[in-house]
Design a protein around this nucleic acid. Structure first.
Lengths: 404, 404
DNA sequence: CCTTTAGTTCGGTAACAGAACGAACTAAAG
DNA sequence: CTTTAGTTCGTTCTGTTACCGAACTAAAGG
């Protein structure tokens, strides 16, 4: 924001922006009612915001008694943010406006050489997406990168990310910040997916959510009170190491993770091979099960039991109001039904297990929500201690709009 | 506080109080430096607070260059709070002043008839403790009750509390509020113990702590970012139902909890009986193990393995910086050593496991910290959205001072 | 015309920062 | 011992900012 305002002004300004963002097009008078501020104060603040381009007039009310009200909304193109999902095989970049709408999206295979090449690739994709959209790079304000590993806040390196070479040796956030010239935040991809499901699912702060992703590996993200639970070293939700499934006291479980050994891609392929003596990939096993192949059915049952135990463990420990399951394996309906059944058998209270609604866009959505939240805080609530701004989510269709 | 002040004033006032509370006896000038407010503002606020009795002059600095400074501290007796630990066998009540010092403590066997009789007993003990201390009941401001069950915020009843008859049928908080005429909060006792270990252990907001209590049953409390993790229905940390130990898919595990069946009092007694054919109570088994009884040693080893798995599960899911273990069984050193060893065998990263430093006072301490925090918020930060006031803990010796 | 709602102008109040100032003290020179 | 310089504490004063309530203007509908 323009100048150094007082704390009091900051709070009022933030309240006004939030009211306008949350309640669509509104008049100054309505904002006054919503925020509890006086009409005079609101008018002044809205005037400033309009001059600086953060909100814009969007029309007038009509057809009711009394003077027509001029209504305002957030000027979506006043700034933009980038959300990046860096996976082992693909890099996905979404450029979003202030309301969370996707303006442009880019996907590319991940640079196989890893390290700085990947960083350069991300920067290139972000800049390309930004020049697609009106406004370009100048309006870019924040970027959030989701990575398949544990970001170390001290060094900026990504730990436990075997799928991307050399990413544990460089300061990803710092390097990208230098290339793009904007604030960059790095976060675990499953954590972002959890946040994305929470945000676009229009779940309030009171709704606590656990997202569990089953694919090449198994991991979880936890959203409590509207905030990500990161843990002391950012490793919260690394449930591959939950001590069951395989014998947790076997030495091998220390390197791969006891649960991961029995509940991810390797486990499905391996168990089917053991039962049937034939090699099938994961979709193959699902197809075989659909055709009535007893070994495939047994394999899926076994995996579902392990996933159900993991869910039961998380419910016992953090008590979420909903568990969302996703990932290339977790999102399969056949598995979900089995998991639901097993959870009921091994946990005494009812547990709501839902399928991911966002699929491979979940992490992107979560990144967007973090970026927008940071943007709002840095613009309108700087210096406030416990500032936690909830940016209202766009419609799911709007979020995926830029996808081609 | 006296009248309706502006939000701005509230925040300043809260900052001043916190500075005085945190930095011991301080002068007005120092408070100005600490808070960043101007000397004028601080002077005015300190003056008000002194007039209203919240802070008091406590002496002068001496022996340094310049004018002597008058130093102030929180007036400890301006208000008091009560912390209650309601157990299946004992009720413990501590009355604390504003600094967290225990002014008086009372212990009694829990009224075996349960229900309203217990509520009346608590009220009587609180009032007795209050009249022991100078000031009496008039200054009592808040009471926090720790209960061995899950408080239902909607009804005020305590669910899953088999040890106290009829406590699931009444509104404990409401009834006590009516009897005492002060705000009453009810919280799970293990959660309070976790908070107590965190508070009196002088751990900062950044230090995430998991407290695990092993005794008649097994349970855990989770403190993240300085705040209790309660979960959607207040059942976070109910790890008795973690799906391992006994076969989680056995129907019996649904009622008792798979982990609880193998890692609490019953499990120790039962397993020793199975191995040796002889009945011993828990201390007996520990003694036997110390004397080299192989069956006893095996029993403890088995229990330690299960506790270690529970710890590993919690570390994998919430990633705390420290795990504290307590309860009548958990606090035994012999067990702790075994648990440490087992955790290292089944979890790949180092985990800090410490023994409870507060013993049976942990829940009382946690209750005091919650009550003081609420007291400060209601007095000095009312109407602030994300107000989370950290009341500095007293010395451990001060906290137990009232115990006779 | 009256009623209703939107938005602005104006005057008053509260909170705060910064400068100026007196008070109280130490240190050190004479 | 006296005097002076330097330091810190705390108050007083002044100007700025933010806010609110009330009065007012504007623009509708009936």
């Amino acid at each position: 924001m323009s100048t150094q305002s007082n704390i009091s002004r900051r709070m009022s300004q933030s309240a006004v922006i939030q009211a306008i963002a949350s309640f669509g097009p509104v008049s100054r008078a309505s904002v006054a009612k919503i925020t509890g501020l006086s009409k005079q104060t609101v008018s002044e603040i809205v005037g400033n915001l309009e001059n600086e381009g953060w909100v814009r007039e969007v029309g007038q009310t009509e057809g009711h008694i009394g003077r027509r009200a001029v209504v305002y909304e957030i000027a979506p193109s006043a700034a933009s943010i980038a959300s990046v999902d860096l996976g082992g095989t693909k890099v996905r970049v979404a450029l979003c406006d202030l309301t969370g709408r996707v303006l442009a999206e880019r996907v590319e295979p991940t640079e196989p050489t890893g390290g700085m090449d990947v960083v350069a690739q991300i920067a290139r994709l972000v800049q390309a997406a930004a020049s697609d959209a009106v406004g370009g790079v100048e309006k870019l304000h924040t970027a959030v990168v989701g990575v398949p590993g544990v970001p170390d806040p001290a060094s900026g390196a990504i730990l436990l990310a075997p799928n991307i070479a050399g990413i544990d040796q460089i300061d990803l956030a710092g390097a990208l910040r230098d290339m793009l010239g904007v604030e960059v935040f790095v976060e675990n991809d499953v954590n972002l997916a959890a946040l994305g499901e929470h945000w676009l699912g229009s779940r309030g702060e009171g709704e606590d959510l656990v997202f569990i992703s089953v694919g090449t590996g198994i991991g979880a993200g936890i959203v409590m009170g509207g905030q990500l639970l990161r843990g002391h070293s950012g490793a919260a939700g690394e449930i591959g190491f939950l001590p069951f499934g395989a014998d947790p006291f076997e030495p091998e479980s220390l390197s791969t993770g006891a649960l991961e050994r029995v509940a991810a891609t390797e486990a499905i392929v391996g168990q089917y091979r053991a039962l049937k003596g034939r090699e099938l990939d994961v979709p193959g096993v699902f197809d075989a099960a659909a055709d009535g192949d007893q070994a495939a059915i047994e394999t899926l049952d076994a995996v579902a039991r392990q996933i159900a135990r993991a869910i039961a463990a998380m419910v016992a420990i953090v008590d979420p109001s909903v568990v969302v399951i996703g990932g290339s394996i977790g999102a399969r309906t056949e598995l979900l039904d089995r998991v639901r059944g097993c959870v009921a058998q091994c946990y005494p209270r009812p547990v709501t297990v839902e399928k991911s609604t966002l699929g491979d866009h979940a992490a992107l959505a979560g990144g967007a929500s973090i970026a927008l939240s940071h943007l709002h805080i840095s613009l309108f609530a700087e210096g406030q201690s416990g500032a936690r701004i909830a940016v209202p989510p766009p419609a799911i269709a709007d979020f995926k709009a830029g996808a081609s």
